[in-house]
Lab assay of single mutants.
Amino acid sequence: DDWEIHFNNITIRLHGVSEEQIEELKELIKNGAHEEELRKWAEEVNR
């Protein structure tokens, strides 16, 4: 699925990401992940 997530003036566009991966991302954000951590997560997902 395609997703677009907005938070802290950042837009993250995701393509072909599962519901499970979105839940992981929500947890990262909820736990106060920094932009660098989110980038690493996105790189892993996009492999």
Rank of each mutant, 00 (worst) to 15 (best):
residue 46 N to W: 15
residue 7 F to M: 07
residue 14 L to A: 02
residue 24 E to V: 10
residue 21 Q to Y: 08
residue 2 D to N: 12
residue 28 L to V: 01
residue 44 E to K: 14
residue 16 G to T: 09
residue 32 G to L: 02
residue 12 I to M: 08
residue 6 H to M: 12
residue 36 E to A: 10
residue 32 G to T: 01
residue 33 A to V: 08
residue 25 L to T: 00
residue 5 I to R: 04
residue 29 I to G: 00
residue 37 E to I: 07
residue 32 G to I: 01
residue 25 L to R: 00
residue 19 E to Y: 13
residue 14 L to W: 03
residue 8 N to Q: 11
residue 46 N to S: 10
residue 30 K to Y: 06
residue 25 L to Q: 00
residue 10 I to T: 07
residue 41 W to G: 00
residue 10 I to G: 05
residue 4 E to V: 14
residue 37 E to T: 09
residue 5 I to T: 03
residue 32 G to S: 02
residue 31 N to G: 07
residue 1 D to T: 14
residue 13 R to E: 03
residue 4 E to H: 15
residue 38 L to A: 00
residue 29 I to V: 06
residue 24 E to C: 03
residue 8 N to K: 13
residue 2 D to I: 15
residue 18 S to F: 03
residue 12 I to G: 02
residue 7 F to T: 03
residue 27 E to C: 13
residue 37 E to W: 09
residue 3 W to C: 10
residue 34 H to C: 11
residue 12 I to H: 05
residue 12 I to R: 05
residue 4 E to S: 09
residue 45 V to N: 07
residue 6 H to F: 09
residue 3 W to Q: 04
residue 10 I to E: 04
residue 9 N to S: 11
residue 23 E to C: 08
residue 20 E to T: 09
residue 12 I to L: 13
residue 33 A to Y: 04
residue 5 I to G: 02
residue 40 K to R: 14
residue 38 L to I: 13
residue 44 E to P: 00
residue 44 E to A: 11
residue 44 E to H: 14
residue 19 E to I: 12
residue 3 W to T: 04
residue 8 N to D: 07
residue 22 I to P: 00
residue 33 A to G: 03
residue 29 I to D: 00
residue 22 I to S: 02
residue 10 I to W: 05
residue 45 V to D: 01
residue 38 L to W: 03
residue 21 Q to F: 06
residue 10 I to Y: 05
residue 35 E to Q: 04
residue 31 N to D: 04
residue 41 W to C: 02
residue 20 E to C: 06
residue 38 L to C: 03
residue 18 S to D: 03
residue 4 E to M: 12
residue 38 L to V: 10
residue 2 D to K: 11
residue 28 L to F: 03
residue 39 R to G: 02
residue 18 S to A: 05
residue 23 E to S: 08
residue 1 D to E: 13
residue 14 L to H: 01
residue 43 E to H: 06
residue 10 I to F: 11
residue 27 E to L: 15
residue 7 F to G: 01
residue 42 A to Q: 05
residue 15 H to P: 04
residue 28 L to C: 01
residue 23 E to H: 10
residue 8 N to S: 09
residue 32 G to A: 02
residue 20 E to D: 08
residue 9 N to F: 15
residue 7 F to Y: 08
residue 17 V to F: 10
residue 27 E to V: 13
residue 16 G to D: 08
residue 15 H to T: 10
residue 1 D to L: 15
residue 20 E to M: 09
residue 16 G to K: 15
residue 5 I to L: 09
residue 47 R to K: 14
residue 2 D to W: 14
residue 33 A to R: 01
residue 4 E to P: 01
residue 23 E to A: 12
residue 1 D to H: 15
residue 3 W to E: 02
residue 37 E to N: 03
residue 19 E to W: 13
residue 10 I to N: 03
residue 12 I to W: 02
residue 15 H to Q: 07
residue 9 N to I: 10
residue 28 L to G: 00
residue 25 L to A: 02
residue 25 L to D: 00
residue 33 A to E: 02
residue 17 V to Q: 01
residue 43 E to W: 11
residue 15 H to F: 15
residue 26 K to W: 15
residue 12 I to Y: 04
residue 6 H to N: 07
residue 47 R to C: 12
residue 16 G to F: 14
residue 2 D to F: 14
residue 37 E to D: 12
residue 35 E to P: 10
residue 30 K to T: 04
residue 27 E to G: 09
residue 12 I to F: 05
residue 11 T to H: 06
residue 21 Q to A: 08
residue 12 I to N: 03
residue 46 N to R: 10
residue 28 L to Y: 04
residue 9 N to E: 07
residue 33 A to H: 03
residue 43 E to A: 10
residue 46 N to E: 10
residue 31 N to W: 09
residue 1 D to F: 15
residue 37 E to M: 10
residue 43 E to Y: 11
residue 32 G to H: 06
residue 1 D to I: 15
residue 24 E to K: 09
residue 35 E to T: 06
residue 20 E to K: 10
residue 25 L to K: 00
residue 34 H to Q: 13
residue 39 R to H: 07
residue 45 V to S: 02
residue 25 L to Y: 05
residue 6 H to L: 11
residue 18 S to Y: 05
residue 3 W to M: 09
residue 18 S to Q: 04
residue 33 A to F: 04
residue 24 E to P: 01
residue 17 V to K: 02
residue 9 N to V: 09
residue 45 V to T: 06
residue 7 F to Q: 01
residue 47 R to Q: 15
residue 45 V to P: 01
residue 3 W to N: 03
residue 5 I to F: 14
residue 4 E to K: 08
residue 33 A to K: 02
residue 42 A to S: 04
residue 24 E to M: 09
residue 1 D to C: 15
residue 42 A to N: 01
residue 2 D to R: 11
residue 34 H to M: 10
residue 47 R to I: 15
residue 13 R to G: 04
residue 38 L to T: 00
residue 39 R to V: 12
residue 44 E to F: 10
residue 28 L to A: 01
residue 35 E to Y: 12
residue 14 L to R: 01
residue 8 N to H: 09
residue 4 E to Y: 13
residue 1 D to Y: 15
residue 3 W to V: 10
residue 19 E to T: 11
residue 35 E to D: 06
residue 15 H to G: 05
residue 14 L to K: 01
residue 19 E to M: 11
residue 38 L to N: 00
residue 22 I to R: 05
residue 1 D to A: 14
residue 45 V to L: 10
residue 15 H to K: 12
residue 33 A to M: 11
residue 36 E to S: 12
residue 2 D to V: 15
residue 44 E to L: 09
residue 21 Q to I: 13
residue 17 V to L: 13
residue 42 A to E: 06
residue 4 E to W: 12
residue 19 E to P: 12
residue 10 I to A: 04
residue 32 G to Q: 03
residue 46 N to F: 15
residue 40 K to D: 04
residue 44 E to N: 13
residue 1 D to N: 13
residue 37 E to L: 07
residue 34 H to E: 12
residue 9 N to H: 09
residue 26 K to F: 15
residue 1 D to K: 15
residue 28 L to M: 09
residue 19 E to L: 13
residue 39 R to K: 09
residue 34 H to S: 15
residue 38 L to R: 00
residue 10 I to Q: 05
residue 40 K to S: 06
residue 24 E to R: 09
residue 2 D to T: 15
residue 28 L to N: 00
residue 11 T to W: 09
residue 31 N to L: 07
residue 39 R to D: 03
residue 31 N to T: 06
residue 15 H to N: 07
residue 47 R to M: 15
residue 42 A to C: 08
residue 16 G to P: 03
residue 29 I to M: 07
residue 36 E to M: 09
residue 29 I to L: 08
residue 6 H to W: 07
residue 2 D to M: 15
residue 43 E to S: 07
residue 20 E to I: 09
residue 14 L to V: 09
residue 17 V to A: 13
residue 35 E to F: 11
residue 7 F to A: 03
residue 31 N to C: 09
residue 11 T to M: 08
residue 39 R to E: 05
residue 31 N to R: 14
residue 31 N to M: 09
residue 37 E to Y: 11
residue 22 I to T: 03
residue 23 E to Q: 11
residue 26 K to D: 02
residue 32 G to N: 04
residue 46 N to I: 14
residue 7 F to L: 09
residue 10 I to C: 13
residue 34 H to D: 14
residue 46 N to T: 10
residue 3 W to G: 02
residue 21 Q to C: 06
residue 42 A to H: 04
residue 7 F to W: 10
residue 42 A to L: 14
residue 1 D to S: 14
residue 11 T to G: 05
residue 26 K to S: 05
residue 25 L to C: 02
residue 29 I to C: 10
residue 36 E to Q: 08
residue 43 E to F: 10
residue 7 F to V: 11
residue 47 R to Y: 12
residue 36 E to C: 10
residue 27 E to D: 08
residue 17 V to M: 09
residue 22 I to A: 07
residue 24 E to S: 08
